[in-house]
Design a protein around this nucleic acid. Sequence first.
DNA 1: TGCGCAAACTTGACACTGACAAGATATGCT
DNA 2: AGCATATCTTGTCAGTGTCAAGTTTGCGCA
Lengths: 182, 182
Amino acid sequence: MTTYHHGDLPRQLLDSAAEMAASQSPESISLRELARRAGVSHSAPVHHFGTRQGLLTALAIQGFEALGAAIENYHDDIYAMGVTYVQWALAHPGHYAVMWEPRLLDEDDDSLRSARAAAWTALTAAVARHEDPDSPAEGAGAYAAFALVHGLAGILLSGAVPAPADSVALAREVTQRLRFAR
Amino acid sequence: MTTYHHGDLPRQLLDSAAEMAASQSPESISLRELARRAGVSHSAPVHHFGTRQGLLTALAIQGFEALGAAIENYHDDIYAMGVTYVQWALAHPGHYAVMWEPRLLDEDDDSLRSARAAAWTALTAAVARHEDPDSPAEGAGAYAAFALVHGLAGILLSGAVPAPADSVALAREVTQRLRFAR
DNA sequence: TGCGCAAACTTGACACTGACAAGATATGCT
DNA sequence: AGCATATCTTGTCAGTGTCAAGTTTGCGCA
């Protein structure tokens, strides 16, 4: 089989990129290294993604869509949703790291914006069901819920802080610490 | 004045690096660009910090020490401490971004480890005063508190989510959502 | 069937980066 | 005064992202 028309090059590049981001860091992702791993020329990735930023943006979109799908079925139980959020982040460290590095991404990309907005609204909608709509600080609930799970995922992934043995159990206990306005 | 013995080159390099990290991103920091801004040769920064990682580590240490100093006087009021934490992060976006990017840092650096540990213990100590020591999930309180402020800082800095006008007011309301075990 | 065109990929080049080695210059201590 | 040392420069190397131009392949259509 020749290297021409690899067939599934974009997907393979994204898979390798997720691996690299997970094992090293998002900024360690190199188009040339991805090409090397796929056995194609150094500028084959450029053809599919235009720029490095384009590739990272595609990876982030993939991540937001998968994350959104993972949490969208928990509208009733915000705590279970929070735990699922953290679990997803821990299971997909490469994607997660890229998703929250907007400076690496193309913020003008419509797919990125809508995928991210979808995940955000899924969360705010779930929070709204737990909040008293008459509360003056009603809007803060979504930020608090998101900050809690995003922050927990971030510190667990960063390893900058002593990590507990069972991170899922921790996620359960941490999400329980959230108070809603009602 | 010749360029030899600039006098304060390390500090100036770190200042420029913080600026670059804030206006672009941590990984956009280039030793050569820093040298250019300081008016020195492309490899003067290497002499002071050894590697790029060394420079970023120095920046992170500076950040942890300043952050630790900012929050260490709030042992009584954990909520005020949380707000201060978020305010500090928003006021020092360059430092904050580098601090939580351990993959960019030299994790074997003792100064880094102790500066980070000091900030962490300041927070856990403050949380412990709000927790019932007999509670089975007592340890989760520190993670929850830290996740909340760290997560809020992260999403506000990332700009990935619709940001409110008054972020300090939001920080006040969000920190109030934290529940302690007692 | 065969032709032509578009998509997929390669080759080559350029400016930029971090890192290293070796040399030049200024400062401070004795 | 003189010397050791810290500070900074110059030169070089491999690696990177990006662009331009060429080459190969597969697919639709006559």
